[in-house]
Write a protein that binds this DNA or RNA. Structure first.
Length: 341
DNA sequence: CACTATAG
DNA sequence: CTATAGTGG
Protein backbone atom coordinates (compact mmCIF):
# COMPACT_ATOMS: atom_id res chain seq x y z
CA UNK A 1 0.00 0.00 0.00
CA UNK A 2 2.33 2.70 1.22
CA UNK A 3 1.55 6.29 2.04
CA UNK A 4 -1.06 8.05 -0.11
CA UNK A 5 0.51 11.35 -1.12
CA UNK A 6 -0.81 11.57 -4.68
CA UNK A 7 -1.92 15.06 -5.58
CA UNK A 8 0.50 16.77 -3.25
CA UNK A 9 3.24 17.06 -5.82
CA UNK A 10 3.54 16.81 -9.57
CA UNK A 11 5.69 14.18 -11.30
CA UNK A 12 8.08 14.82 -14.12
CA UNK A 13 7.11 12.53 -16.98
CA UNK A 14 10.18 10.73 -18.33
CA UNK A 15 10.89 8.49 -21.28
CA UNK A 16 12.72 5.22 -20.95
CA UNK A 17 15.63 6.51 -22.99
CA UNK A 18 16.26 9.14 -20.32
CA UNK A 19 16.87 6.26 -17.94
CA UNK A 20 19.39 4.60 -20.25
CA UNK A 21 22.63 3.59 -18.59
CA UNK A 22 21.13 3.85 -15.13
CA UNK A 23 20.68 1.32 -12.34
CA UNK A 24 17.28 1.30 -10.68
CA UNK A 25 16.56 -0.47 -7.40
CA UNK A 26 13.12 -1.96 -7.83
CA UNK A 27 11.01 -2.85 -4.83
CA UNK A 28 10.60 -6.53 -5.70
CA UNK A 29 7.45 -7.17 -3.67
CA UNK A 30 5.83 -4.11 -5.23
CA UNK A 31 6.67 -5.32 -8.74
CA UNK A 32 5.64 -8.92 -8.07
CA UNK A 33 2.26 -7.90 -6.64
CA UNK A 34 1.73 -5.79 -9.73
CA UNK A 35 2.47 -8.69 -12.08
CA UNK A 36 0.42 -11.14 -10.05
CA UNK A 37 -2.62 -8.90 -10.01
CA UNK A 38 -2.49 -7.73 -13.62
CA UNK A 39 -1.34 -10.81 -15.55
CA UNK A 40 -4.53 -12.83 -15.43
CA UNK A 41 -7.12 -14.38 -17.67
CA UNK A 42 -10.51 -12.71 -18.10
CA UNK A 43 -11.83 -15.10 -15.42
CA UNK A 44 -9.26 -13.78 -12.99
CA UNK A 45 -7.21 -16.97 -13.09
CA UNK A 46 -3.43 -16.34 -13.06
CA UNK A 47 -1.13 -18.02 -15.56
CA UNK A 48 -0.03 -21.44 -14.33
CA UNK A 49 2.07 -24.33 -15.58
CA UNK A 50 0.60 -27.83 -15.92
CA UNK A 51 1.40 -28.59 -12.26
CA UNK A 52 -0.49 -25.53 -11.04
CA UNK A 53 2.56 -23.38 -10.23
CA UNK A 54 1.67 -19.70 -10.74
CA UNK A 55 3.74 -18.20 -13.55
CA UNK A 56 2.24 -14.71 -14.02
CA UNK A 57 5.13 -13.06 -12.24
CA UNK A 58 7.71 -15.01 -14.28
CA UNK A 59 6.05 -13.77 -17.47
CA UNK A 60 6.07 -10.20 -16.14
CA UNK A 61 9.69 -10.37 -15.00
CA UNK A 62 10.98 -11.91 -18.23
CA UNK A 63 9.34 -9.48 -20.64
CA UNK A 64 9.62 -6.34 -18.52
CA UNK A 65 13.31 -6.94 -17.78
CA UNK A 66 13.95 -7.66 -21.45
CA UNK A 67 12.45 -4.27 -22.28
CA UNK A 68 14.36 -2.45 -19.53
CA UNK A 69 17.66 -4.03 -20.56
CA UNK A 70 16.94 -3.25 -24.20
CA UNK A 71 16.67 0.41 -23.18
CA UNK A 72 19.93 0.13 -21.28
CA UNK A 73 18.26 0.29 -17.87
CA UNK A 74 19.63 -2.18 -15.32
CA UNK A 75 17.05 -3.25 -12.79
CA UNK A 76 18.19 -4.40 -9.35
CA UNK A 77 15.51 -6.24 -7.36
CA UNK A 78 15.34 -5.57 -3.64
CA UNK A 79 13.40 -8.17 -1.66
CA UNK A 80 11.79 -7.50 1.72
CA UNK A 81 13.22 -9.16 4.81
CA UNK A 82 11.32 -9.66 8.04
CA UNK A 83 8.47 -7.17 8.38
CA UNK A 84 9.12 -4.64 11.14
CA UNK A 85 7.24 -5.08 14.40
CA UNK A 86 5.40 -1.82 13.64
CA UNK A 87 3.84 -3.44 10.59
CA UNK A 88 2.67 -6.76 12.07
CA UNK A 89 -0.97 -5.73 12.36
CA UNK A 90 -1.10 -4.39 8.83
CA UNK A 91 0.46 -7.53 7.38
CA UNK A 92 -2.11 -9.74 9.11
CA UNK A 93 -4.90 -7.43 8.00
CA UNK A 94 -3.76 -7.69 4.39
CA UNK A 95 -3.74 -11.48 4.44
CA UNK A 96 -7.31 -11.33 5.70
CA UNK A 97 -8.36 -8.80 3.02
CA UNK A 98 -6.86 -11.00 0.31
CA UNK A 99 -8.52 -14.15 1.57
CA UNK A 100 -11.86 -12.35 1.59
CA UNK A 101 -11.24 -11.11 -1.95
CA UNK A 102 -10.59 -14.70 -2.97
CA UNK A 103 -13.99 -15.68 -1.58
CA UNK A 104 -15.69 -12.86 -3.50
CA UNK A 105 -13.80 -13.87 -6.65
CA UNK A 106 -15.16 -17.43 -6.46
CA UNK A 107 -18.65 -16.10 -5.75
CA UNK A 108 -18.57 -13.68 -8.67
CA UNK A 109 -17.34 -16.46 -10.93
CA UNK A 110 -20.16 -18.74 -9.79
CA UNK A 111 -22.79 -16.18 -10.80
CA UNK A 112 -20.97 -15.40 -14.06
CA UNK A 113 -19.94 -11.83 -13.24
CA UNK A 114 -16.59 -11.78 -15.04
CA UNK A 115 -15.86 -8.10 -14.44
CA UNK A 116 -16.29 -8.43 -10.68
CA UNK A 117 -14.40 -11.73 -10.73
CA UNK A 118 -11.37 -10.09 -12.22
CA UNK A 119 -11.43 -7.18 -9.77
CA UNK A 120 -11.62 -9.55 -6.79
CA UNK A 121 -9.02 -11.89 -8.27
CA UNK A 122 -6.62 -8.97 -8.57
CA UNK A 123 -7.21 -8.02 -4.96
CA UNK A 124 -6.58 -11.62 -3.88
CA UNK A 125 -2.99 -11.80 -5.18
CA UNK A 126 -0.60 -13.11 -2.54
CA UNK A 127 3.12 -13.85 -2.56
CA UNK A 128 3.80 -17.47 -1.65
CA UNK A 129 7.17 -18.97 -0.80
CA UNK A 130 7.26 -20.70 -4.20
CA UNK A 131 6.45 -17.51 -6.07
CA UNK A 132 9.34 -15.70 -4.36
CA UNK A 133 11.72 -18.61 -4.94
CA UNK A 134 10.85 -18.81 -8.63
CA UNK A 135 11.26 -15.05 -9.03
CA UNK A 136 14.73 -15.11 -7.46
CA UNK A 137 15.68 -18.12 -9.54
CA UNK A 138 14.68 -16.47 -12.80
CA UNK A 139 16.46 -13.22 -11.91
CA UNK A 140 19.56 -15.28 -11.11
CA UNK A 141 19.53 -16.96 -14.52
CA UNK A 142 18.98 -13.56 -16.14
CA UNK A 143 22.07 -12.19 -14.40
CA UNK A 144 20.04 -9.47 -12.71
CA UNK A 145 21.23 -8.47 -9.21
CA UNK A 146 19.04 -9.46 -6.28
CA UNK A 147 19.42 -7.73 -2.92
CA UNK A 148 18.02 -9.15 0.31
CA UNK A 149 16.92 -6.34 2.61
CA UNK A 150 17.10 -6.93 6.38
CA UNK A 151 13.63 -5.41 6.74
CA UNK A 152 11.73 -3.12 4.36
CA UNK A 153 12.89 -3.38 0.73
CA UNK A 154 11.81 0.18 0.13
CA UNK A 155 14.16 1.37 2.90
CA UNK A 156 17.08 -0.68 1.56
CA UNK A 157 16.47 0.62 -1.98
CA UNK A 158 16.35 4.21 -0.71
CA UNK A 159 19.61 3.68 1.17
CA UNK A 160 21.30 2.31 -1.95
CA UNK A 161 20.11 5.29 -3.97
CA UNK A 162 21.43 7.62 -1.28
CA UNK A 163 24.81 5.88 -1.47
CA UNK A 164 24.72 6.32 -5.26
CA UNK A 165 24.94 2.55 -5.72
CA UNK A 166 21.82 2.96 -7.86
CA UNK A 167 20.42 6.04 -9.58
CA UNK A 168 16.86 5.81 -8.33
CA UNK A 169 14.27 3.67 -6.59
CA UNK A 170 11.56 2.08 -8.71
CA UNK A 171 8.22 1.63 -6.92
CA UNK A 172 4.60 2.68 -7.04
CA UNK A 173 4.74 3.79 -3.41
CA UNK A 174 6.09 7.09 -2.14
CA UNK A 175 7.61 5.54 0.98
CA UNK A 176 11.13 5.55 -0.46
CA UNK A 177 11.06 9.36 -0.40
CA UNK A 178 10.35 9.18 3.33
CA UNK A 179 13.23 6.74 3.71
CA UNK A 180 15.47 9.35 2.09
CA UNK A 181 15.71 8.27 -1.55
CA UNK A 182 17.00 11.13 -3.73
CA UNK A 183 14.90 9.93 -6.68
CA UNK A 184 11.82 7.79 -7.19
CA UNK A 185 10.58 6.46 -10.53
CA UNK A 186 6.99 5.28 -10.65
CA UNK A 187 5.38 3.20 -13.38
CA UNK A 188 8.57 1.44 -14.36
CA UNK A 189 6.94 -1.97 -14.22
CA UNK A 190 3.58 -0.90 -15.60
CA UNK A 191 3.23 1.05 -18.81
CA UNK A 192 0.79 1.37 -21.63
CA UNK A 193 -2.96 1.61 -21.42
CA UNK A 194 -4.62 0.63 -18.18
CA UNK A 195 -8.22 0.45 -17.16
CA UNK A 196 -9.10 2.48 -14.09
CA UNK A 197 -10.59 0.23 -11.40
CA UNK A 198 -14.36 0.12 -11.45
CA UNK A 199 -14.51 2.73 -14.22
CA UNK A 200 -14.78 2.32 -17.95
CA UNK A 201 -11.91 4.71 -18.52
CA UNK A 202 -8.49 3.89 -19.92
CA UNK A 203 -5.44 5.99 -19.12
CA UNK A 204 -2.00 5.90 -20.63
CA UNK A 205 0.59 5.06 -18.00
CA UNK A 206 4.07 6.55 -18.44
CA UNK A 207 7.13 6.55 -16.17
CA UNK A 208 7.17 9.43 -13.67
CA UNK A 209 10.23 10.80 -11.95
CA UNK A 210 10.11 12.40 -8.51
CA UNK A 211 13.26 14.23 -7.49
CA UNK A 212 13.34 14.47 -3.71
CA UNK A 213 15.06 17.84 -3.59
CA UNK A 214 12.58 19.34 -6.05
CA UNK A 215 9.58 17.82 -4.28
CA UNK A 216 10.67 19.13 -0.90
CA UNK A 217 11.65 22.61 -2.09
CA UNK A 218 8.39 22.95 -4.04
CA UNK A 219 6.48 22.11 -0.86
CA UNK A 220 8.82 24.23 1.23
CA UNK A 221 9.32 21.47 3.81
CA UNK A 222 12.10 19.13 4.96
CA UNK A 223 12.21 15.35 4.69
CA UNK A 224 11.42 15.12 8.39
CA UNK A 225 8.37 17.31 7.87
CA UNK A 226 7.28 15.14 4.93
CA UNK A 227 7.46 12.17 7.30
CA UNK A 228 5.33 14.03 9.86
CA UNK A 229 2.88 14.93 7.13
CA UNK A 230 2.69 11.29 6.00
CA UNK A 231 2.12 10.02 9.53
CA UNK A 232 -0.87 12.36 9.77
CA UNK A 233 -2.21 10.98 6.47
CA UNK A 234 -1.43 7.38 7.38
CA UNK A 235 1.44 4.99 6.63
CA UNK A 236 1.93 1.22 6.71
CA UNK A 237 2.81 1.68 10.39
CA UNK A 238 -0.30 3.67 11.33
CA UNK A 239 -2.90 2.80 8.68
CA UNK A 240 -5.71 5.30 8.44
CA UNK A 241 -3.61 8.07 9.93
CA UNK A 242 -5.33 10.73 11.98
CA UNK A 243 -9.06 10.72 11.42
CA UNK A 244 -10.30 13.33 9.02
CA UNK A 245 -6.87 14.36 7.78
CA UNK A 246 -5.91 13.91 4.13
CA UNK A 247 -2.83 15.12 2.25
CA UNK A 248 -4.02 18.71 1.86
CA UNK A 249 -5.01 19.22 5.49
CA UNK A 250 -1.85 17.49 6.70
CA UNK A 251 0.26 19.79 4.54
CA UNK A 252 -1.49 22.84 5.96
CA UNK A 253 -0.94 21.65 9.53
CA UNK A 254 2.76 20.91 9.00
CA UNK A 255 3.31 24.24 7.23
CA UNK A 256 1.62 26.11 10.07
CA UNK A 257 3.13 24.22 13.01
CA UNK A 258 6.43 22.96 11.62
CA UNK A 259 5.89 19.43 12.92
CA UNK A 260 3.61 16.88 14.61
CA UNK A 261 4.96 17.69 18.08
CA UNK A 262 3.83 21.33 17.87
CA UNK A 263 0.55 20.32 16.21
CA UNK A 264 -0.17 18.04 19.18
CA UNK A 265 0.91 20.70 21.69
CA UNK A 266 -1.43 23.20 20.13
CA UNK A 267 -4.25 20.69 20.22
CA UNK A 268 -4.67 20.57 16.42
CA UNK A 269 -4.41 16.78 16.54
CA UNK A 270 -4.84 14.43 19.46
CA UNK A 271 -1.65 12.98 20.88
CA UNK A 272 -0.56 9.53 19.76
CA UNK A 273 2.55 7.36 19.65
CA UNK A 274 4.11 8.68 16.48
CA UNK A 275 7.76 8.77 17.63
CA UNK A 276 8.64 5.13 16.83
CA UNK A 277 7.19 5.54 13.32
CA UNK A 278 9.19 8.69 12.73
CA UNK A 279 12.33 7.02 14.05
CA UNK A 280 11.79 4.06 11.72
CA UNK A 281 11.48 6.27 8.62
CA UNK A 282 14.53 8.32 9.65
CA UNK A 283 16.73 5.34 10.50
CA UNK A 284 15.44 1.97 9.20
CA UNK A 285 17.44 -1.27 9.24
CA UNK A 286 19.56 -1.49 6.08
CA UNK A 287 22.65 -3.38 5.02
CA UNK A 288 25.84 -2.76 3.03
CA UNK A 289 26.01 -6.46 2.25
CA UNK A 290 24.91 -6.43 -1.37
CA UNK A 291 26.47 -7.13 -4.75
CA UNK A 292 25.24 -5.19 -7.75
CA UNK A 293 27.54 -6.44 -10.46
CA UNK A 294 25.65 -7.48 -13.51
CA UNK A 295 26.38 -10.87 -15.02
CA UNK A 296 25.76 -12.14 -18.53
CA UNK A 297 22.49 -14.09 -18.63
CA UNK A 298 22.68 -17.87 -18.41
CA UNK A 299 20.46 -18.28 -21.46
CA UNK A 300 20.19 -22.05 -21.24
CA UNK A 301 19.38 -21.71 -17.55
CA UNK A 302 16.49 -19.37 -18.40
CA UNK A 303 15.21 -21.68 -21.14
CA UNK A 304 15.56 -24.86 -19.06
CA UNK A 305 13.71 -23.28 -16.15
CA UNK A 306 10.92 -21.49 -18.02
CA UNK A 307 10.37 -23.96 -20.85
CA UNK A 308 11.46 -27.21 -19.18
CA UNK A 309 9.88 -26.62 -15.77
CA UNK A 310 7.24 -23.92 -16.25
CA UNK A 311 5.79 -24.64 -19.71
CA UNK A 312 6.81 -21.38 -21.44
CA UNK A 313 6.99 -21.40 -25.24
CA UNK A 314 10.64 -21.60 -26.24
CA UNK A 315 10.40 -19.24 -29.22
CA UNK A 316 8.99 -16.48 -27.01
CA UNK A 317 11.65 -16.94 -24.37
CA UNK A 318 14.43 -16.96 -26.97
CA UNK A 319 13.06 -13.75 -28.46
CA UNK A 320 13.18 -12.04 -25.06
CA UNK A 321 16.75 -13.25 -24.56
CA UNK A 322 17.66 -11.84 -27.95
CA UNK A 323 16.31 -8.46 -26.88
CA UNK A 324 18.45 -8.60 -23.77
CA UNK A 325 21.53 -9.45 -25.84
CA UNK A 326 20.84 -6.48 -28.12
CA UNK A 327 20.46 -4.19 -25.12
CA UNK A 328 23.73 -5.36 -23.64
CA UNK A 329 25.55 -4.74 -26.91
CA UNK A 330 24.08 -1.26 -27.15
CA UNK A 331 24.95 -0.61 -23.52
CA UNK A 332 28.53 -1.65 -24.06
CA UNK A 333 28.99 0.78 -26.94
CA UNK A 334 26.89 3.72 -25.73
CA UNK A 335 27.18 4.03 -21.98
CA UNK A 336 30.15 4.14 -19.69
CA UNK A 337 30.37 0.65 -18.35
CA UNK A 338 30.56 1.66 -14.69
CA UNK A 339 26.99 2.92 -15.02
CA UNK A 340 25.64 -0.56 -14.80
CA UNK A 341 28.23 -3.13 -15.62
C1' DC B 1 2.25 -7.43 -18.09
C1' DA B 2 3.69 -8.61 -23.29
C1' DC B 3 3.05 -11.44 -27.36
C1' DT B 4 0.54 -12.77 -31.67
C1' DA B 5 -2.81 -12.33 -35.16
C1' DT B 6 -5.86 -9.75 -37.48
C1' DA B 7 -8.64 -5.76 -39.01
C1' DG B 8 -8.98 -1.09 -40.20
C1' DC C 1 1.05 2.26 -38.91
C1' DT C 2 -2.40 1.92 -34.84
C1' DA C 3 -6.18 -0.46 -32.45
C1' DT C 4 -8.22 -4.30 -30.55
C1' DA C 5 -9.20 -9.35 -29.26
C1' DG C 6 -7.49 -13.28 -27.73
C1' DT C 7 -3.74 -15.87 -25.54
C1' DG C 8 0.24 -16.88 -22.78
C1' DG C 9 1.24 -20.82 -18.73
Amino acid sequence: MGVQLSGLFEPKVVEFKELAGKRIAIDAYNALYQFLSIIRQPTGEPLMDRDGNVTSHLSGLLYRNANLLEYGVLPVYVFDGAPPELKKGVVEGRVDTRLKAEERWKEALARGDLEEARIQAQASARLSRGILEDAKRLLGYMGIPVVQAPSEGEAQAAYMAGEKAVWAVGSQDFDSLLFGAPRLVRNITITGKRKLPRKNIYVNIVPELFDSETVLSDLGITREQLIDLSILVGTDYNPGGVEGIGPKKAYKIIRETGGIDVAVEKGLVRGFDYEPIKAFFMNPPVTDDYELSWKAPDEEGVVDFLCGERDFTESRVRKALEKIRAGIEKGRSQFSLDGWL
